[in-house]
């Protein structure tokens, strides 16, 4: 089993964090994992993306040049990376920020209204968690338990009070996929 993800958006959307949480949760389940961010001259609001590979054998290339699963949090990311997907791939995109995209027909497409749901939860910053929930539900890359445990580790004691809202966002994201 080897699962590859490319998670892209702009800086500040928490795309690197989505990737890290998937990698950490998979590590908890004893998978081999790698997380590789794009890096460039340090700037705010620029493009950000990360490649995550989860496997049950040592990982070869940590780069994902033909993403079987693409997560696009904004339109430039969708336009840039969707053409690189192999046929039969899975695309999850943030439908709150990407209006009327021209989508390929040979891939599975799951629109996730991340920002709308986050606003409904009255915490705009949970938009990435909504997407995280959707990714987990759509790909089953990690178990729900391990993802929540990872989230808990990440929040630590200082931000423990944020756990519920983040769990809620994850659940809402999962519900979009189930619907």
């Amino acid at each position: 089993m080897e699962k590859q993800f490319l998670i892209a958006g702009f800086g500040g959307q928490g795309v690197l964090l989505i990737g890290q949480l998937i990698a950490k949760a998979a590590m908890k389940q004893d998978y081999e994992v790698s997380w590789m961010p794009s890096y460039g001259p340090e700037m705010r609001g620029g493009e950000a993306n990360c490649a995550v590979v989860v496997s049950d054998e040592p990982i070869g290339s940590p780069l994902v040049s033909e993403p079987p699963v693409l997560i696009a949090m904004n339109k430039p990311s969708l336009n840039k990376f969707m053409p690189m997907m192999p046929a039969g791939g899975v695309l999850l995109y943030n439908s709150s920020l990407i209006e009327d995209p021209e989508l390929r027909e040979d891939i599975t497409v799951i629109p996730v209204p991340c920002n709308e749901i986050a606003e409904k939860l009255q915490n705009a910053r949970t938009a990435n968690m909504v997407m995280l929930g959707a990714i987990r539900q759509a790909t089953d890359v990690v178990t729900e338990d391990s993802l929540i445990a990872t989230l808990q580790d990440w929040l630590g004691e200082k931000k423990a009070h944020m756990l519920d809202i983040n769990k809620q966002a994850i659940a809402e994201g999962a519900a979009v996929v189930n619907a």
């Binding site: 990698a23 994992v33 940590p62």
Partner: peptide, 8 residues
């Protein structure tokens, strides 16, 4: 890549 990548 070795510097920026995260692995267990």
């Amino acid at each position: 890549l070795i510097g920026q990548m995260m692995e267990p």
